[in-house]
Simulated scan of single mutants.
Amino acid sequence: MTLVPLPRLMVEPLVRNALLEDLGLAGDITSAAVIPEDHRSTVVMAARQPGVIAGLDAAELAFQLVDPAIVLTRHLNDGAAAKPGEVIATIEGSSRGILTGERTALNFLGHLSGIATVTAGIVAAIAGTKASVACTRKTTPGLRILEKYAVRAGGGVNHRFALSDAVLIKDNHVAIAGGVAEAIRRAKAGAGHMVKIEVEVDTLKQLREVMEVGVDAVLLDNMTPDELREAVGLVAGRAITEASGRVTPQTAGAIAASGVDLISVGWLTHSAPTLDIGLDWKSNHGD
């Protein structure tokens, strides 16, 4: 799948807000006091550990919004694997501007690369199966578009971006509606013809009830690989099958081998460790 960059219009407000948060009410008082205004430098962003890169557009914007004259040259692109010590990008320009944008740029790049890296690990664990790895809505408030982009950079796919994307009937919906069949009936009556309907089930008994009514997808929650295999047989291609719960790099292979179409993993976005990326000085230009 081709990784399509996010439009600048979507990314810039997020980066701008992050910079404003960091600048506070007086700006970068340290750089302004210590670094001459006309001083220029060349620095590199380099990986401290192996991982998959994501977030270079956000990192570049962090520097350019501080000073449009700063130039970032990429040596790797989003979706590429980086080795420890490998240079990801070179940045040239105002020393003050580089120092002011440094932390915001590294925050975005490290966080998003961490998500891409753990996603790539699950993708590798299920290689050779038909299953895809999907993220969820368990994202950092305000950063969903970037975090879901990072999942794609790691080789995964995206689940819903928002509540309005599709109908997903979960246990509380069923309880309030008075039963799964009634919940599905109401969803079909209320949703437009372009809206897909998915239902979460915890047992094979629930799955049979759902399939009698018919839906577009079923979320098979916290089932064992044997239960998932039986569930796939019960569905028999009549709906998309999605497994969720207790997914790790160690369990993903057996889950995928059951024949499910998707494996959704919430911790890809809410608990991925940051990839360690540093900014290293290479040379100064000016006094």
Rank of each mutant, 00 (worst) to 15 (best):
V151Q: 11
V151H: 11
R152D: 01
A153Q: 01
A153W: 04
A153M: 02
A153P: 01
A153S: 13
G154C: 08
G155L: 10
G156A: 09
N158P: 01
R160I: 03
R160P: 02
R160G: 08
F161W: 11
F161Y: 14
F161I: 00
A162S: 15
L163K: 10
L163G: 10
L163I: 12
L163R: 12
S164L: 08
D165G: 06
V167M: 14
L168G: 02
I169W: 01
I169N: 00
I169D: 00
K170L: 06
D171W: 06
D171Y: 07
D171T: 04
N172M: 00
V174P: 01
V174C: 04
V174T: 11
A175W: 07
A175V: 10
A175I: 11
I176C: 12
A177H: 12
A177V: 10
A177Y: 13
A177R: 13
A177I: 11
G178D: 13
G179Y: 12
G179T: 12
V180I: 15
V180D: 01
V180R: 11
V180T: 14
A181C: 06
E182S: 10
E182R: 15
A183Q: 12
A183M: 06
A183K: 12
A183F: 06
A183V: 08
I184N: 05
R185P: 01
R186S: 07
K188H: 14
K188V: 08
K188A: 14
A191N: 11
G192A: 09
G192I: 06
G192V: 07
H193F: 15
M194T: 13
V195K: 14
I197Q: 12
E198K: 05
E198M: 09
V199N: 03
V199K: 09
V201C: 09
D202F: 02
T203A: 07
L204E: 12
K205N: 10
K205F: 01
K205G: 07
Q206W: 03
Q206L: 01
L207N: 02
R208D: 15
R208L: 02
R208T: 14
V210K: 01
M211A: 09
M211C: 06
M211D: 06
E212Y: 00
G214F: 04
V215R: 09
V215D: 10
V215E: 10
V215T: 04
A217V: 00
A217K: 11
L219C: 03
L219M: 15
L219E: 07
N222C: 04
N222R: 10
T224R: 03
T224K: 11
T224P: 03
T224C: 06
P225H: 13
P225C: 13
P225Y: 14
D226A: 15
E227H: 05
E227K: 05
E227D: 14
L228G: 03
L228H: 03
R229K: 15
R229Q: 13
R229S: 15
A231S: 13
A231C: 05
G233R: 14
G233F: 02
L234T: 02
V235R: 04
V235C: 00
V235K: 08
V235I: 15
R238F: 09
R238I: 06
R238S: 15
A239S: 13
I240E: 12
I240V: 15
I240G: 02
T241M: 05
E242P: 03
E242C: 05
A243N: 07
S244D: 07
S244I: 04
G245T: 09
G245M: 08
G245Y: 07
R246I: 00
R246W: 00
V247D: 05
T248K: 04
T248P: 03
P249M: 08
P249H: 05
P249C: 08
